[in-house]
Write a protein that binds this DNA or RNA. Structure first.
Lengths: 97, 97
DNA sequence: AAAAGTACTTTGAATTTCAAAGTATAATTA
DNA sequence: TAATTATACTTTGAAATTCAAAGTACTTTT
């Protein structure tokens, strides 16, 4: 096989999704507000990217209340961590020649 | 500033464009056929991604004939190389926490 | 009690992605 | 030599994605 981008996961193509995963592999959890600030995304935009990752079972979404305010908290699943690791390795391989 | 994906260039978000640039920073030139094979892209798909990079002045497109067959050859511009280098550094920084 | 803020969700328009079909010529086979 | 197949792209437009504005449902401040 020749295809050099074969192992690059299209679910992580977009910088916001790449950012979400980067955050979630080093932080056990992150909430909506934290992701929004770290990524500079608008609300709707962030919601659709988290939804895309959730659909792939790469992240887990947990809704609860902190005090009486709603709080949505995200974490990377095992599947997500593994897929992201593979993706990062593929990018590194691609970039060093 | 908090935005951790601030230096990630959206022109290189897509894996095919990332692949094109990776190829063009190590090879002075690559033609349509070579890119197509290395990236596993369809014709129309590759054409639109090269067009996007050309629009940003990140790659240069030269059309000629080899014998009597048309040949389209791509190369990275100085601007493209610089932008890509910055992008790669931003990705590396993002990925190591 | 009204106004402003927080934490999202919904919506749909704009943009992007993609492959099928088209164009034009070259090479092969019958 | 005529027909068929292959090469090297380009054009087209439907489908998918991206995005921010507006909406919902509270909570907090004035």
């Amino acid at each position: 096989m020749k295809n050099i981008i074969h192992n690059i996961n299209k679910a992580f193509d977009h910088r916001i999704r790449l950012g979400i995963m980067s955050i979630l592999v080093v932080n056990e959890f992150a909430d909506f507000k934290m992701l929004k600030e770290l990524l500079g995304a608008t609300d709707g935009n962030l919601a659709s990217h988290t939804k895309a990752l959730e659909k792939e079972d790469y992240i887990l979404v947990e809704k609860s209340f902190i005090g009486r305010k709603p709080n949505t908290r995200y974490s990377a699943t095992k599947k997500g961590r593994e897929a992201f690791k593979k993706h990062v390795e593929a990018i590194e391989k691609l970039l060093k020649q």
